[in-house]
Write a protein that binds this DNA or RNA. Sequence first.
RNA 1: GGCCCUGUCAUCUAACGGUUAGGAUACUGCCCUCUCAAGGCAGGUAUACGGGUUCGAUUCCCGUCAGGGCUACCA
Length: 448
Amino acid sequence: MVLRLDDTDVERNTEASVTSIFEGLKWLDLGWDEEYKQSERLALHQKMAWAIFDQGQAYRDFTPAHTGDADRSGAQGTWLFNPGMRELSREESDRRAGAGAPFALRFRVPRGIGQEVRFSDAVYGEQRKAADDIEDFALLRSDGMPTYHLASCADDADLRISHIIRGQDHLTNTFKHVLIFAAAGVQAPQFAHLPLLVAPDGTKLSKRRHGPVVSVTTYRDAGFLAEAFINFLCLLGWSPKNDREQMALAELQDAFTLEGINRANAVVNFKDPAPTPEETFDPKAVWLNAEHIRSLSVEELSARLLPIVREAGFPVDPAKMLKVTPLIRERIKLLRDVLTAADFFFVDQLPSYDPLELIPQKGDVAMALNVLKRAREVLGETEFKHDLLDQALRAAAQELGIKAGQMFQPIRVAVCGRKNAPPLFETLEVLGRETSLARIEQALEKLQ
RNA sequence: GGCCCUGUCAUCUAACGGUUAGGAUACUGCCCUCUCAAGGCAGGUAUACGGGUUCGAUUCCCGUCAGGGCUACCA
């Protein structure tokens, strides 16, 4: 696998965009064997362009550059080439070039002889197009820089690329590439075009239009597991055909075939802006991530969570993290959720909460006070072990003549600072007697 | 405008021309339950439309419509 940066467009080739691409690829950990930058291989590209020119299959076009976004509403029909330039004599062409006139080098696409350009695509099948429908595309710009079409063909040939797997937006460009490969006398690689990933609005993903949700690093920073993200991506436009969804990288590799790829574009169902950060992402991606999180061992998950917790400023040690992890494993969908799901394990002082939360279902302040006072006694003398806590607190509920749930809720809110939290006894065990009692004490003060 | 590609639930997708059109996500309800999750069960929504071919079309062919891509020195 070759990582090649197609960076022949000087304007768009910024440090920031390259960094972002590298960071994303590094995170995905796909791995590659060789690495190249097209901008460092210009001589090779130019050599191929002029070889094609020498054979008469390219010509100089001295027409001033035309901006790409000209109106194509149709009135002017299809542009194929600039009359006069295509048939300029070699002598005249050389003379003008010698005089320093700027020019682009264009491919001389065969015309008027009914020639057909064809290739076989591993996904879209046999493709054919009349050469008469292909414009005389540029090989070199007037500043001498190669175009994408030329540079990529020259590099594909030089690097002996076997398979080109790319977006379907290049399907029609491939006819041009087939022409270049033929003119250069090299064999074309195998082509496989993939359906596009499109935004909910149906257009292909673009940073300009759709913002950070289309950047790989956004998923990394939000707490996706790289393997889950890859899994999700694989399921867009492809499926193992046996209803499996959650798959490890090795399983994906085993099941994957180019022939199994669909031809229709797939919508990445993101919402931007979204009410909450989590709702930004495709719900299926989030679900898959949760599945992958749950399939990680406690040790593995704990190790992945630790740096996130520390970076957020909680001074937590690996042993503590290991104890907390099983309590939140089934409650987080993104790794970063650890910060909101387990924060109360890490802080000394609970953030403030509404004291009314301490009042149990169908209860009142008096009941909450009774519960907490009784809990203070029970927790003061019971060993902090799951089963013992369970027995002692249930017995206490019975003595008070209330339901177990009414007993547990005030305690949960007192020690966690909120109603929704992991199971109570496990939580108390991890928190320990000292912290638990201190928080119950604070809760009592809040209520009075 | 021209050329190319595509069209199965809201979304991702299954279905050698013969299935009550399957699965998943999301959603709703129930169960489980100390809350929240997780898990289990149940439920609703799809073959764009019109013609063919065929005993029979989601599946093959044609047209229409819709969407996407490319289209004079972006990739």
